[in-house]
């Protein structure tokens, strides 16, 4: 099963790359890569996803820790609300829900409207959608890891040897979960890079350098000019893979 799945992924990647070498479309890719529109869109995608990954870590690590270590009433409801539902929600619906939340007839939208801060159709709209959709990827991975650490006796032993809660976290929990944090951050970032539907609905995704992301251009181009869409897809996947792999290597 694993061989089947991994060979399928490989086959997909190879066919994507093969298409271009076979059709000698390299000039097209290069021209696209150097166009201002693509550079700006890549920039928006990478910067917004990186901000999302940072927010994801700041929100996700303490949340995962709480889900794994604290036993309180309504924990399963909370977990459903902050992990399962965002995980399973169609991204387009997330964008729509945000849009509704920020209309002036909604209390939150009203509040923002009165303070003069607008979110809809801005860069921060992208970030908000992506945080909602991507952070659960980190939390589900990390809370599982924390749970498996909790099941061992290691933290109790550290405390019996004199370590406070915080010292235990720093000397035992963190070193043992470090790889999961890195992997979860990578997943969170990758999911954010790929996000389309929610961001299109909530941010419009049309202003170059502000709301127009790479996946959004690919979707638009796919409807009119397939070769360009394919060239863009190749550029995006190359960038994503290179950044993800170098992040993992750097952190480990």
């Amino acid at each position: 099963m694993m061989i089947l799945a991994s060979s399928f992924t490989l086959y997909m990647l190879i066919s994507l790359f093969y298409l271009f070498t076979a059709l000698s479309e390299w000039p097209l890719i290069l021209r696209q890569l150097l166009s201002q529109r693509v550079i700006l869109a890549l920039w928006v995608s990478i910067v917004s996803s990186t901000i999302v990954a940072f927010i994801g870590v700041i929100l996700g690590v303490p949340t995962s820790w709480m889900l794994a270590y604290k036993d309180f009433k309504g924990k399963s409801i909370l977990e459903t609300l902050i992990v399962t539902i965002p995980h399973a929600y169609p991204p387009g619906v997330v964008g729509t829900a945000y849009l509704l939340m920020f209309t002036t007839s909604n209390p939150i939208g009203n509040l923002f409207d009165r303070t003069g801060i607008s979110i809809v159709n801005t860069f921060w709209a992208i970030v908000m959608v992506k945080v909602f959709i991507s952070t659960p990827f980190l939390v589900s991975l990390l809370s599982e890891k924390f749970r498996s650490i909790r099941e061992t006796n290691l933290e109790v032993i550290a405390r019996s040897l004199g370590a406070s809660d915080f010292q235990t976290f720093l000397t035992v929990t963190l070193p043992l979960s470090y790889k999961a944090i890195v992997a979860g951050t990578g997943r969170c970032w990758a999911r954010a890079m790929g996000e389309i539907a929610g961001t299109i609905v909530f941010s419009g995704a049309v202003i170059p350098g502000v709301t127009q992301t790479m996946p959004a251009i690919i979707v638009f181009e796919a409807q009119y000019n397939l070769p360009i869409a394919l060239a863009l897809a190749l550029i995006l996947s190359t960038f994503s893979i290179v950044i993800l792999v170098s992040f993992r290597v750097l952190m480990e």
Partner: peptide, 11 residues
């Protein structure tokens, strides 16, 4: 708390 009991523990 555990850390103030000074107990050696072998699980």
């Amino acid at each position: 708390p555990i850390e103030e009991r000074n107990i050696g523990f072998l699980p």
